[in-house]
């Protein structure tokens, strides 16, 4: 086993220092291997990975527009099928949370409803980062973005994060999972599992954004881990509609620990008394997650 594993996502791309996305993409491609076609929506990943003559993609890759990656993936798959797909080439879509939750939601729903044999992976950095940190359907409660800033009349984003995994499940998707860049082995295992499933599979991977969330570029993985350990971002797997695996915690950390290390929540701590209801509500959401997914390991 001395052979050096060839990375299928070349370095030298234009991602911001400390970006969580290339960490996830490298692992995803480790898991898929080279017999794959990757489809991406417009977004951070497309922008930083695909300048002409400087593409990082060592696998065939296509980007069309913002909101059509699921259907472009369907088209690629059907082109393969039209020739019998003799090499069993897989099709994987890797798209941001804005493309997934908002602008491409219709196309994604269409693809999941058809059950096309595509593994769709949403890299979730919880806002439109490529355009300068605007609120998306995946932006969590209380976070500030450039279109949900805090102020005298605002505590930031006033809605909770859209639950895309649940929506995917409601489409009858056979494999639905979450992952985080704080556990890449888990991510790779899930990608492999998603590829094995016949029909659509959906994985949502938390990819931190130090620029948009406001933390030091050295802490990408640490902050992602805190999201898991506080119950903010539960890690689970659904197979055939059943919850089959959950990342267990010995103890749940308080949401505050995760929130307070990011500038996007800074306003909530400027006057904790005033924002108590919001901080309590976020804590309550994490407790709900812990209960819902049975996250605490029984002692």
């Amino acid at each position: 086993m001395t052979e050096t594993k060839k990375t299928l996502f070349a370095s030298g791309h234009r991602a911001c220092p400390g970006c969580g996305v290339p960490i996830a993409v490298r692992s995803i491609l480790n898991a898929t291997g080279s017999n794959v076609v990757v489809v991406s929506s417009t977004g951070c990943l497309e922008t930083f990975s695909s300048p002409i003559d400087l593409s990082s993609w060592e696998v065939p890759w296509i980007h069309s527009v913002f909101e059509n990656a699921p259907t472009v993936a369907t088209g690629v798959l059907e082109a393969l099928n039209s020739k019998g797909n003799p090499n069993n080439t897989k099709v994987v879509a890797i798209c941001g949370d804005g493309a997934t939750n908002d602008i491409g939601f219709g196309a994604l729903s269409g693809m999941l409803e058809r059950g096309d044999d595509v593994l769709y992976i949403c890299y979730d950095n919880e806002a439109y980062m490529n355009t300068g940190v605007q609120t998306s359907g995946a932006t969590p409660y209380g976070a500030t973005t450039t279109t949900s800033p805090s102020g005298e009349y605002s505590f930031g984003r006033d809605r909770t994060k859209k639950d895309l995994c649940r929506i995917a499940l409601e489409h009858g998707v056979k494999y639905v999972a979450t992952a985080s860049i704080s556990d890449l082995k888990d991510l790779e295992r899930k990608v492999k599992k998603g590829l094995e499933v016949e029909g659509s599979a959906y994985i949502q991977v938390l990819t931190t954004c130090n620029i948009g969330w406001g933390f030091d570029s050295s802490r990408a993985v640490e902050v992602a881990r805190l999201a898991v350990e506080t119950g903010v971002f539960p890690i689970y797997e659904y197979e055939n509609g059943e919850l089959t695996n959950v990342k267990k915690l010995k103890e749940k950390k308080a949401a505050k620990e995760y929130l307070s290390c990011q500038k996007r929540y800074k306003h909530l701590f400027a006057d904790e008394e005033k924002n108590k209801e919001h901080l309590d509500y976020i804590e309550q959401l994490t407790v709900q997650n812990v209960t819902k997914y049975g996250i605490l390991a029984s002692k």
Binding site: S64, N68, A73, T74, G75, V76, E78, S82, S109
Partner: peptide
């Protein structure tokens, strides 16, 4: 005997043939 894809909108129809054509099929 080719593949016929019913989609959710004309936007998706155009997108499906885009992917198919890039995937090497006449579309």
């Amino acid at each position: 005997k080719g593949r016929f894809v019913r989609v959710d909108s004309e936007f998706s129809a155009a997108s499906a043939v885009h992917g198919a054509s890039a995937g090497g099929a006449r579309a």
